[in-house]
Amino acid sequence: MKSIRDDIAEDLYNTWLTISFELKNHFRRKRVIISFSLAVILPLIFYVVPKIWAEFPDSADEFASLSLSFVNLLIIIAGSLFAGDVISGEFEEKTGLLLFPTPQRHMTIFIGKYIGALIPTMMVVSIYYLTTSVEVIGIYGTGALNHNMAKSFLVALVYTTSAVSVVFFFSSLLQRKITSMLLGFFSLMMILPVISNVLQFIVEVEPWYIVTYSAGLITDVFAVTMTIGGGPGGQFLLFTPDFHLGLVVMVVYTLVFLFLGILISIKRRMR
């Protein structure tokens, strides 16, 4: 039996191999162009529309908060595109018949696949923030860029880990990649937000345990009162997520769904 040091070094190298292989696979596909383009176009719309037809908000925080209200959607889109088929694709297209009978622990393959989906999604988020930051500097000057933007970026990255985990879980659970992508997308885009809204507005209970509710922190950190949505006074929110609790919820989702996904994948393998 080889030494534990060699064993660990091998596992780390195998994980790295899977990550680089996954990245190579992702970067050859149109999904990269789609998500990276969205990461530039979406914040640009928030610059161009007020520039031509309206006025920019008074403060940089307001502008950033408005522009970044869509990073959540982009995280879900990119996460579904990159993680939606990482496992189900191996089963559906039977590429796993080549990949799994190799001298690697399946744990390292699955974790490598998760990280391989996480990296491009985080890159998409970073591009979105970079574009928004450039716009903020262009409109309000360099002094307008404050630590709220960094805070929001970090919260968005934590949310990215959980969104990718949820989609990864569906990818390991389902047979077909289109089903896993769609279910991952709609659970984050519709199912969880609907549950969250029902709890908030009908049951009037704070849905602190729902990750999409915690995702509100991405813009909440700017502490800007938004009047989106109309109605008297403009705002409907009954609850706002607690910063620390919200982040902890995101991390719990990340770990629970990731390891459930890995367990299911290992159990299922190429049955």
Partner: peptide, 22 residues
């Protein structure tokens, strides 16, 4: 506007927790 919430350290810590456990 409400008072700014949160800090930079906690999300960094949370990211470290995720990558540490993974």
């Amino acid at each position: 506007d409400p008072e700014p919430i949160g800090n930079l350290y906690f999300p960094v810590a949370m990211l470290l927790v995720v990558f540490g456990i993974v």
